[in-house]
Design a binder for these strands. Structure first.
Lengths: 262, 262
DNA sequence: CAGTGGTCTAGACCACTGG
DNA sequence: CAGTGGTCTAGACCACTGC
């Protein structure tokens, strides 16, 4: 299948440039990691596909298998690729999810996630708008730039549980529609990969307790004095570029936000 | 300093027992890791101290340095030890903290953590009680068993921000006093290490949005309709034994709970 | 300068997967 | 059975720390 590497690559400059203040020593495996990352970023291998075997990469980069291994170890630790013994190493994807939703940490208070099944989605809105100052700051774009804005409700077992606003860069997500958001089977982030070629790799969240505005309470069918979790998420692609701003309001009377510390 | 190992250890049984259903193959480095973990657990090396060098451990366990390395790699990834190039590998501790408070994810909305400095602590209560059903479940003990219960307020810049209830197994924390809780300089978990020999290694949190009870609102000096974050934490020692149940109420008008997803 | 962790190699062998 | 990732070794050398 995978042919002999087209570019035998002239061996990455062995060590460093001795310029500047810091010698900036960079180990070989880090350089290899950066090269693999670059290939991932450029889409040389698609999400779900296998990347070349360790031996192939070792030959391509003219280093030992152990060095490639250590590079892939780190990529694997960052959830960018997935190793499968006997089969190969695969580009990570939000489809074929290990745990249904990778970035959603809201769990039902009792019982398994698998019991309640996937969320029902009701899309209230999906249109092109101009970025407010807040949204622009989150997405690292300019105020007034075009962005896609969607609003939707996620329900579990028929109970509206999450009210979400999503903002995406207008350029990359031009063709986004309410139909896509509502009808795609599987995680929304998997749809982003498939339809827009954008892979979310990590995210940061700021969590607060808030009371709903009148409209929000109405949409979630709850009293005005029900405290909610406000979860503000910024999701990043490769190279730490922010590609999504999402603000969720979570009901926490039947569910809770679960976090592991170490 | 460190003498020649007293117990040259008869080499851990090379592989596995072929008994039972699963062959239960366990790689050498996992066995080494388990042995090191055991030493950590038994306090052979105290928090903050250096463990033997990789070469020493390799000799002690009769394996190559690379195998010890891989074992320590995992312990390091789990924050049980800390590597320092040129110096050695050290038992992790909540003192000499890398980030002030390791398990507290509440950050001020603007500005650095270092700006606002450490929290002021006011201890409201600290006494021996019998475990309720809830507390017993969290600590994996029996209802009615003796536990220490403390209640305190953490303030930042003079503003009461966190109201905490803490429950600890009565046996291990017999000598806990309000004075200890209030006056110890540094993280409370560091005090637990020093005074009680209990090292918290990881924790799980369940987060909800709630409204304060009258007394809670009064203690935090906030209106009754101020939504708060309820953070229920169970902290574990080695061998995944729960050793602390903590319930915090966080103000989130000036601070937010910060989380990283990947 | 000696001692520590960190990198890199080359080669052998093992466990798992699929045809 | 061949191919993949996973383990283990032995040895060389590098970068960092402290005396």
């Amino acid at each position: 299948m995978s042919s002999i590497p087209l570019t035998p690559e002239p061996i990455p400059a062995p060590f460093s440039g001795t310029a500047g203040v810091t010698p900036a020593f960079s180990p070989l495996y880090q350089q290899i990691k950066a090269l693999i990352l670059q290939s991932l970023q450029q889409g040389e291998w698609k999400p779900g596909e296998a990347i070349p075997s360790e031996m192939e990469l070792a030959a391509r980069f003219r280093v030992s298998q152990g060095t490639v291994r250590k590079a892939i170890d780190e990529l694997s630790a960052e959830n960018l690729v997935i190793r499968r013994q006997g089969k190969g190493t695969f580009v990570a994807t939000h489809a074929e999810q290990q745990v249904q939703y990778r970035f959603l940490k809201l769990l039902p208070d009792s019982g398994d996630v698998r019991v309640e099944g996937p969320a029902q989605r009701r899309v209230l809105e999906c249109r092109r708008v101009r970025a407010s100052a807040d949204v622009a700051r989150g997405l690292a774009i300019r105020s007034g730039d075009a962005v896609m804005h969607a609003k939707r409700i996620l329900s579990f077992g028929g109970v509206p549980t999450i009210l979400e606003d999503i903002w995406l860069p207008g350029l990359a997500f031009k063709g986004l529609t309410a139909e896509l958001l509502a009808n795609y089977q599987g995680p929304t982030y998997a749809m982003f990969e498939l339809e827009f070629g954008v892979r979310m790799v990590r995210a940061e969240e700021k969590i607060r307790a808030v009371l709903p505005a009148a409209e929000e309470a109405h949409l979630l069918q709850i009293p005005l004095d029900t405290p909610l979790l406000s979860v503000e998420r910024i999701a990043y692609t490769y190279n730490d570029a922010p590609m999504e701003l999402r603000r969720g309001l979570y009901r926490t009377d039947t569910h809770h936000y679960h976090n592991e510390l170490s």
